[in-house]
C-alpha cells in the first residue's frame, strides 16, 4: 500500500494551480485526500502528477450573498457542519454532514473534493442535486458555471475537464424546509441509500414546493422534477408520502452489490423517502404555525 512515484506540485494561488493543470499531463488534484490517497496507496489511481491545492487560501471561505452562499472548494466538512451561515441558510447541509465518515475524515475532506469525486452514495452530491447548487469551475483559459444536475455524469464521472478546477460552489439559500436521512451499515460508512427532501406548504396545507433526491440508487444522485411538479398542489397527508415514496421506489433502478440487493435498496429508498417526507412536512407545518417564512 505505497503509491507509485508521481510528480508533486504545491501551487500558492488559484492562477498558478490552473496553469499547472494546463501544463502538466495526467495530473490529479489533491484537496482533503480522503479518496485520492487511499486510491494512490492501493495503486488504483496512478496519476503522473499530483497538484496539492491545500495552500489556496482563496478557496477556504464561506461568503454570504443576498440569495446564496458562495462556498470555497477547500471548505472542510467540519466547517460546513459548524458554520453559522450554513446552519442558518442551508441547515440540511449541516444535518447531513454528521453522517459523513468520522471526525478525522471531516477534518480533512472538502466540499470541492467530495463533489469532484462524484461518488453517487456520497452526501454532498445528493444535496447539490436537491438544492440546485452550481459549480464554479475555472481553467487557465476561462471560467464557467455548471449546474449540479449537469455536473454528475456517472459513477465517479463529472463534467469537469482535465484542465479544470472547481473553485467555488454556489449554494442557494433554502426556500423550503429540507431534511436528510440515510441508511448505512455502520456509523460513518457510505450510505446504502440516502434521501433528501425540500418542501413548502401553503396556508391550506397544500404542497407549493417539493424536491426529492436519492443517493446510492444509481450512477448519479437521482432526481425527477416531473414527479415533483406532479404533486404540487396536493394536500399533505401521511398517505400522500406513502404514495410518493412508492411511486419513486418503483421508478428507480438501484444497483446490487456486496452489501445490498437491488430489491433491498428499493425498499430502503421507499422507507427513507416516506420517513423524510413526513419529517419535512412536520417541520413545514411548524414553520407555518410560527407564521415566519421558511429559512
Amino acid at each position: 500500500m505505497k503509491p507509485p512515484a508521481f510528480a508533486y506540485y504545491r501551487p500558492e494561488t488559484v492562477q498558478e494551480a490552473l496553469q499547472l493543470l494546463q501544463k502538466v499531463n495526467d495530473a490529479k488534484i489533491l484537496a482533503g485526500g480522503q479518496s485520492l490517497i487511499p486510491m494512490l496507496n492501493m495503486r488504483l489511481a496512478r496519476p503522473a502528477a499530483v497538484i496539492d491545492i491545500n495552500r489556496l487560501r482563496e478557496l477556504t471561505e464561506i461568503q454570504e450573498y443576498p440569495d446564496h452562499l458562495l462556498v470555497g472548494a477547500l471548505v472542510r466538512h467540519y466547517q460546513l457542519m459548524e458554520s453559522p451561515l450554513v446552519r442558518r441558510f442551508a441547515p440540511v447541509v449541516a444535518e447531513a454532514e454528521r453522517h459523513i465518515g468520522h471526525a478525522a475524515i471531516r477534518t480533512r475532506g472538502t466540499i470541492g473534493g467530495s463533489l469532484s469525486h462524484a461518488d453517487p452514495a456520497a452526501e454532498l452530491p445528493l444535496l447539490a442535486t436537491l438544492g440546485d447548487w452550481e459549480l464554479h469551475v475555472a481553467s487557465a483559459t476561462g471560467a464557467r458555471v455548471i449546474p449540479a444536475r449537469e455536473f454528475f455524469l456517472g459513477y465517479l464521472m463529472t463534467a469537469l475537464g482535465a484542465d479544470e478546477l472547481v473553485t467555488h460552489i454556489r449554494v442557494p439559500k433554502a426556500t423550503g424546509v429540507s431534511r436528510f436521512s440515510e441508511f448505512a451499515l455502520r456509523a460513518g460508512d457510505f450510505a446504502l441509500v440516502s434521501a433528501a427532501v425540500s418542501l413548502n406548504l401553503d396556508a391550506h396545507q397544500k404542497i407549493d414546493h417539493l424536491r426529492l433526491a436519492l443517493g446510492g440508487v444509481g450512477e448519479t444522485p437521482w432526481r425527477e422534477p416531473a414527479i415533483e411538479a406532479h404533486y404540487r398542489g396536493s394536500e399533505a397527508s401521511p398517505n400522500l408520502w406513502t404514495v410518493i415514496a412508492t411511486e419513486v421506489a418503483d421508478l428507480i433502478d438501484p444497483p446490487e452489490d456486496l452489501h445490498a440487493s437491488a430489491a433491498y435498496r428499493r425498499q430502503l429508498a421507499r422507507a427513507l423517502l416516506e420517513k423524510t417526507l413526513a419529517e419535512t412536512a412536520a417541520d413545514a407545518r411548524q414553520t407555518l404555525t410560527k407564521g415566519g417564512p421558511a429559512s
Binding site: H259, A263, Y264
Partner: peptide, 11 residues
C-alpha cells in the same frame, strides 16, 4: 445475518 441477508429471508 446482515441486513441484505435478512431482507432476502424475510422477503
Amino acid at each position: 445475518v446482515t441486513p441484505k441477508r435478512l431482507f432476502a429471508t424475510v422477503a
